[in-house]
Structure formats: C-alpha cells, structure tokens
C-alpha cells in the first residue's frame, strides 16, 4: 500500500464572527511515498489546518484526500480514529505528552489500541525510547524532562505503532537550537532508515532545510515549491 498523500481540490472554511473564512482553497498537492517535506508559509496560510486534515483530526468541506491509500475524507468518526491510530504518527510543537504518565507510559499509550500484550507493549515502547536515546529516562514524568527530551519522547510515541506517515507540527518551535537539531536528525533518520513519509509544518528555515522538498503555502493555496538534493 502506498504511504503517499494525494490532495485534490481540498477546501476548508471556518465561520468567524458571521463571516466565512476560507483557510484552504481547492488545494492540489501530492506527497510521494517516503518523501520528507516541509510546509512553510505565513501564519494563516493554512499549513496547520492542512496537517490536521491529513491526520484526520479535522474534516474538509470539499475535495479528495487520500493518505496511505485511504480516502480519509470518506471515513466516519470511529473509522477515522482507528485509521489514525494505525497510520499516522503525530509530533506536536508543545509535545503534548500526558503529564501524569511516565515517558514509558506515554510511549506505550498508542499501543493500547493494538492487540499486543502488556509485555509486548512494554518491549515495543522501550525499543522506541531506545531509538530516540531516552531509555534511561523511561521512568521520568514530562515535568522531569527537558524540552528536547520531551519532544524525543513524543517522537518515540509517534513511531511506536510503526505508522506509515509522520506529521510534525512545528516540532522544533519550542526548542533551543541543539535540541531542535537532535529532533530534526531523528525525523531524518525515521525517513531515511525506516522509510516513513514525513510531512513537517515549520516556520524555522533551518528545520525546513532538513527536508528534501519545501512546499510554500499562501492564502490556502500552494504558492511555490523547492526541491532540495
């Protein structure tokens, strides 16, 4: 099954103060399987909305959206949740770890939606933590970790179910340069070694440089693209 993303005529609008605000305007875009792309653009250009639609967190008003071979726009709520659990790994700007759980428990959380035994869930989670270099922090709560470590735990959580697509929304936005570089290096590793399709929204030019392709958006439409070697 392809783990690419195909978008045709995707439209999304919000009602604000009685007015219709078009955020995505018949967008056309294709992300190839195994691609590592960055979405850039000014605030309000629709980057995060697009990411949410691709990840099934929000619904489009019109258009077609195919992610990893699935017509996401045609799934109902329960199907969308199940599909999301299986296909998508999210990395958020604010890490979004659950504060009352340890690093290991946070990483194990998505595995609850799988038929794995507790023992296997633990093994998988430890492997993911090892991949991000945080095995020794497994018993720490998010409040006991640095920002960079929290984001690495979030990446471990994103990949623990072996999803085909990694969606990262400003993954380095809250990090210092050194931590940001470590997170970006991880995303590159996931793409190059594990062949995950990585789509990252970012304002950070240095982060965007880690992508092979940079997609610029403006006013809900594709403005221009840059291919990088």
């Amino acid at each position: 099954m392809s783990n690419g993303i195909q978008i045709h005529g995707l439209t999304k609008a919000y009602e604000r103060g009685g007015q219709r605000l078009v955020v995505l305007d018949e967008l056309e875009l294709e992300i190839a399987p195994g691609e590592r792309a960055a979405l850039m653009g000014p605030s309000g250009s629709g980057k995060s909305t697009l990411l949410n639609l691709i990840g099934g967190l929000d619904r489009a008003d019109a258009g077609q959206l195919v992610v990893a071979g699935e017509r996401v726009d045609q799934l109902d709520g329960a199907e969308l949740a199940a599909w999301r659990a299986e296909t998508i790994g999210f990395v958020f700007q604010g890490f979004n770890l659950i504060p009352v759980l340890t690093a290991l428990e946070n990483v194990m959380l998505p595995l609850l939606l799988t038929p794995l035994s507790r023992k296997l869930r633990r093994e998988h989670a430890l492997r993911a933590l090892d991949l991000v270099g945080l095995t020794d922090r497994k018993s720490h709560r998010p409040s006991e970790l640095s920002g960079g470590q929290e984001q690495r735990v979030a990446i471990a959580r994103a990949i623990v179910t072996d999803p085909q697509v990694i969606l990262a929304d400003e993954p380095t936005g809250d990090l210092d340069r050194a931590s940001a570089d470590a997170v970006l290096a991880l995303l590159v590793k996931l793409n190059e070694e594990l062949h995950k399709t990585v789509l990252m929204v970012t304002h950070d030019p240095l982060a965007a440089e880690s992508a092979r392709r940079i997609v610029h958006m403006d006013k809900g439409q594709l403005a221009r693209e840059e291919a990088r070697s």
Binding site: L57, A85, N96, L109, P110, L113, R157
Partner: peptide, 14 residues
C-alpha cells in the same frame, strides 16, 4: 482538555 485532545489525536475513540 489537553489529555483528551492527545488521546483523540492518538486514535482513541470518542
């Protein structure tokens, strides 16, 4: 609210 959002984003059902 944060936890609810995270759970749903991870694929937990309503």
């Amino acid at each position: 609210t944060h936890t609810i959002g995270v759970l749903k984003a991870l694929g937990f059902s309503d």
